[in-house]
Amino acid sequence: MNFNSLYEKPVLFALAAVVVISVGTLVTTFIPLFLPSTQPVSPLFTPYTAVETEGRDIYIREGCNNCHTQTVRPMRTEVARYGDYSRPEESAWDRPFLWGSRRTGPDLARGGGKYPDAWHYRHMANPQAMFDKSNMPAYPWLANAKLDTSLTAGKVKVLGYGYDGAEVARQLAGFRQTVTAPTYPSAQVRSQVTPASLRGEITELDALVAYLQKLGRDLKAAQKPPAVPATAEAAESKNPYAGNRQAEEEGEKIFKENCRSCHGEKGAGGFGPKLVTTAHKFGGSDADLFASVAGGRPGGMPPFLPQLGKERVWKAVAYIRHLERESR
C-alpha cells in the first residue's frame, strides 16, 4: 500500500488517528485504572458520614473547588503553611476528586479540626467581617436552606460507603440532635446566622461545615500526635522580648493577622477565649502561653509554630502581656 494513499482515505485516516491517540491513553490513563497502586486503599481513611456526604455535594454545587485546592504538596513551605502533605489513600472515597487547580483561597485538605464550627459559621456568613482583605464570596443562603436529605440514602449506596438507609437515618437524626442542642459548643454563633425557623433543622451550612471538619481528620488521627514541638522549642521558657515595646508592636501586627479572627479585637474574646485577662485558660506563665500559641490547644486553637516560627510566637506572647497590663 502506498503510504500516501492514507491522505486519500478518510475512514482509514480516522482509524489511524484513533490508534495514534490510543497509545498514550492506554499507558498513562487506562492501564493505571487497573493497577491497585494508583489508588491505594487503607482502613485508616474512612468514608464520609451521611451529613458529610451532603456537605461535600454542597461544596461541589457552589464550586468551592474553583478557588480552593485539597492537595498539600510535599514541599517544605507548603507543609509549614497547611500541614502534612497529601497521601493517595486519603482520596480513596472521593468521587469526584476535589483537588482543584487554583488557589485563590488557601488549601483546605488539612482544615478539619483546625477551627471550631463557630468559626466556619461566621466565616461563611461574611468572610470580610473576619478578614477585611479576603475576596471570598459570602454564602448567606446556605444557612437559610434546610438540607434536602431525600436522596442521601441513594447517594451513600451509589458511592459504596458500606452502610444502609437505616444507618443514614440514624446518623441524620443524631447529627440534628447534636447541632440543635443548647449544649452544642457553637450553638450561639449558629443561632446568630441561622433563621429562627430553621434552628431546629439541619441546614445546608451545617452539612457543609461538617464536611469541612472532616478534611484531613483521618490522617491526623492515624499519626501519633507529634511530641508537642512547643515544649521542646520553649526550652528557654522565658520570653526574650518581655517588656520590649517594639516587640509588642510587632506582636500586635502578628495578632491582627493571625489571632484576631478568633480572639477578637484587642483580645476581647470571640470563638477563642478572651485574652485581656490574667487568668488564662491553659495557664499564664511564659512557657504556658508559648505552648498554647506554638502547639495549639484542643477545642480549635491551631498550632502556629510552623508558620510563625519561634521569634514571632514570642512576640505574640509579648503582645498578650501588653493586653494583660491594659486589663489591669
Partner: peptide, 27 residues
Amino acid sequence: IPLSLTKSYSAYAGVNDANVQWWFGHN
C-alpha cells in the same frame, strides 16, 4: 453513575478520577 436527573457521581475514585480528568483536560 446517575443518581437523579441533575446529579451523578464519577465512575472513578480519587487519584484515578484526577488522572482521567486531566488526561481529558489537556486533550
